[in-house]
Design a protein around this nucleic acid. Structure first.
Length: 467
DNA sequence: CGACGGGACGC
DNA sequence: CGACGGGACGC
């Protein structure tokens, strides 16, 4: 085989680039190569033989470098005889080695693609766009069933697998074209892992992401600076239904600076009751720990409960708030940078505190305008900001809190693994106001450069991005 | 200096 | 009917 592509031919990559052939046992690798090399770069041919007799079992695999090459070869060669007196061959796209299935891959699974498109696209636009890659049987757009509004997603069905493969390989990358999952097996892809909590979100159903903080509204005087009369202490009780170790809880709460005590509670027989006492050396850290970790799923599926327990001191409010603000910046930085912390942040994002506590999560000398509602992220982006954070990015919820104050905020996006992000506005003035007020400023201990974003790089001049 | 994710269909 | 080898990445 070609040593230049050993790695890529070893796996089924790209997808659907390997053929499964059924032939007469007399058909050799050389004969196969003669007939198939015209369709593209062959990375590997393997004629399956009996281990002992070395006789062909009439089964072969042909690995191409591209799916479109394999599909074209399949379409052209299926049913043809490769040598005098030999039976017509069968040609299929091979099942991925990892799939374990030996079922024939059907054209049905290879001819429909799934694409992301501008919301303004019609079915006709979609069909027109993709017909350059092959015969389009139909193009449909996924719409909201009530409003008829496009979801910015569509399907395109081609007549041949090679056409769908070419569309995926060659269409503008902003379409993010992939093969569509066959529809019959009731959409296992309808999950929603990527949804971000937004400021206007106010779901209150138990079990929803906001449940964990629903009761905390009473801990704050709405819009004010003082605590209610609920006790606040440096000492927390962590309760878990599932078995957890003291070390696990220690690791979790140690993400927050200032923990000085973590002890699993055991009964008189020495058994754990699923309760761990955690104490911090300052009120702010304790408040922060409760806010971030109450309701946190750890391990996944097990919702931790965190509440204050009386330690006989530290009941006053202003101190707690000051301490919390100080510890917030450190917490954010740590959580964002550490691998464990990143996971915590990602998962706990669903437990972002409701607007009542916003005042305390943004700490800055800047005189900020009041909170404004976010606008739909699906509208037209009029201006985009590019923000650089030093030393590390602020969390998305803090950024929404901050950048919504100029109005028309659509979306905050942080580039993974980098200290930069983008802010989308549906109104130019909002973006410019944000630059004027926030460029060069420090928020929660993080210095920001706020400027207009360059336009996204275009892979092609044929199509526009949706923003 | 410091730059680009996301995603599923009425039988 | 007709489904998975040989070789070996490089901390």
């Amino acid at each position: 085989m070609d040593e230049s592509n050993r790695a890529s031919s070893y796996l089924d990559e790209p997808a659907n680039s390997r053929l499964f052939l059924v032939t007469s046992k007399s058909i050799t690798e050389e004969i196969i190569r003669e007939h198939f090399s015209t369709f593209g770069e062959i990375q590997d041919i393997w004629v399956v033989k009996d281990k002992h007799t070395k006789e062909s079992k009439g089964v072969s695999f042909v690995k191409f470098s591209k799916s479109s090459q394999a599909c074209t070869a399949m379409e052209e060669m299926h049913g043809r005889s490769l040598a005098e007196g030999t039976k017509p061959i069968k040609v299929f796209i091979a099942q991925a080695r990892s799939s374990g299935s030996h079922r024939d891959v059907e054209d049905e699974e290879l001819t429909r693609i799934f694409v992301m498109i501008p919301k303004s696209f019609t079915e006709e636009d979609l069909k027109e766009t993709f017909k350059e890659h092959g015969d389009v049987e139909y193009a449909i757009i996924i719409r909201n069933k009530n409003t008829g509004e496009s979801k910015g997603l569509g399907y395109v069905r081609f007549h041949k697998p090679s056409q769908a493969a070419k569309a995926i390989e060659n269409c503008d990358k902003t379409f993010r074209a992939i093969l569509a999952e066959p529809r019959t097996k009731n959409s296992s892809a309808d999950n929603d892992y990527f949804s971000n909590p937004r400021l206007e979100h106010s779901g209150n159903d138990p079990g929803s992401s906001s449940y964990a903080f629903a009761h905390e509204s009473s801990s704050f005087a709405p819009g004010g600076d003082t605590w209610s009369s609920d006790i606040i202490t440096r000492c927390l009780m962590v309760s878990s239904r599932a078995a957890v170790t003291q070390e696990q809880i220690y690791g979790l709460f140690d993400l927050i600076p200032g923990m000085d005590f973590c002890e699993m509670q055991i009964d008189q027989y020495g058994f754990s009751k699923g309760q761990v006492v955690v104490r911090f050396n300052n009120l702010g850290s304790a408040v922060y720990a409760k806010e971030k970790l109450n309701g946190f799923e750890y391990p996944p599926g097990n919702r931790l409960s965190v509440s204050y327990i009386d330690d006989g001191e530290d009941r006053t409010s202003p101190v707690g708030k000051m301490a919390m603000q100080l510890v917030a910046a450190q917490m954010m930085s740590m959580v964002w940078n550490g691998p464990c912390g990143a996971q915590l942040m990602k998962t706990s994002a669903g437990y972002t505190a409701p607007p009542v506590s916003q005042k305390s999560r943004v700490q800055t000398d800047v005189a900020l305008p009041s909170l404004k509602k976010l606008v739909s992220p699906d509208g037209t982006v009029k201006e985009r900001l590019f923000v650089i954070f030093n030393p590390s990015p602020l969390p998305v919820d803090v950024l929404e809190d901050l950048f919504c104050r100029f109005g028309s905020l659509m979306e905050v996006y942080l580039v993974p693994g980098r200290n930069v992000g983008y802010i989308k506005y549906s109104d130019r003035n909002s973006a410019h106001d944000a630059i004027a007020l926030l460029h060069g400023k420090v928020v929660n201990g993080v210095k920001m450069k706020v400027m207009l974003a360059d336009p996204p790089k275009e892979e092609s001049h044929k199509r526009q991005r949706t923003y």
